[in-house]
């Protein structure tokens, strides 16, 4: 299990071009830190989606981006409701910061693209992003979450993100 956790962390770190996994391991995060990472990861994908709606004129891209906004917003609302019920605050951590830094860089890069080049980059990133985050959630977060309600929410969230991964796969194929 530990090897898989490290592989997932390395995958995410490599994707965002930093050495986060060497500093700390996602497997060491507590429930509130994990919740923070998930909230940030959701918001990053919403941010990519808004960028896609602003730049792309492809209806399939718009449809996908709207779905990302709708679904990730639903997950975040549930997560916030649960944290409020548990009277807990999500805790910022190294992985959330790494994700944000990576996202800033990627938004800058994608903002320079137009037309088919943007659509291709957005679709490919959505596939890679969901693959990486799903690996992290499945192999690192879910096995380590202690609170049963938080774990259940992550399991539901994972089903959604796996569906997004399949949807992104379809979109990438369509754009080829």
């Amino acid at each position: 299990m530990r090897i898989r956790v490290m592989l997932a962390a390395v995958g995410v770190a490599a994707m965002f071009g930093n050495g986060a996994a060497q500093a700390e391991s996602p497997a060491d995060l507590n429930d509130l830190q994990i919740a923070h990472v998930a909230y940030i990861a959701d918001n990053i994908d919403i941010r990519y989606a808004h960028l896609a709606l602003a730049i792309s004129s492809n209806p399939a891209i718009h449809e996908f981006a709207n779905t990302m906004i709708r679904d990730h917003t639903a997950v975040n609302e549930q997560a916030l409701a649960l944290l409020s019920k548990l009277k807990a605050e999500p805790q910022d951590n190294f992985l959330s910061q790494d994700l944000l830094k990576g996202a800033d860089k990627l938004v800058d890069e994608m903002s320079q693209l137009r037309g088919a080049a943007f659509d291709k980059r957005y679709a490919e990133n959505e596939l890679a992003y969901h693959k990486a985050v799903n690996g992290l959630v499945a192999n690192s977060f879910i096995p380590n979450i202690e609170n049963a309600e938080v774990k259940a929410l992550f399991k539901s969230g994972l089903k959604i993100f796996q569906a997004h991964e399949r949807h992104a796969q379809m979109m990438v194929k369509k754009l080829k």
């Binding site: 709708r70 639903a74 549930q78 969230g157 089903k159 959604i160």
Partner: peptide
Amino acid sequence: VKWINRDLAP
């Protein structure tokens, strides 16, 4: 036919 959404996602 009644559809009931039991998922978190709409």
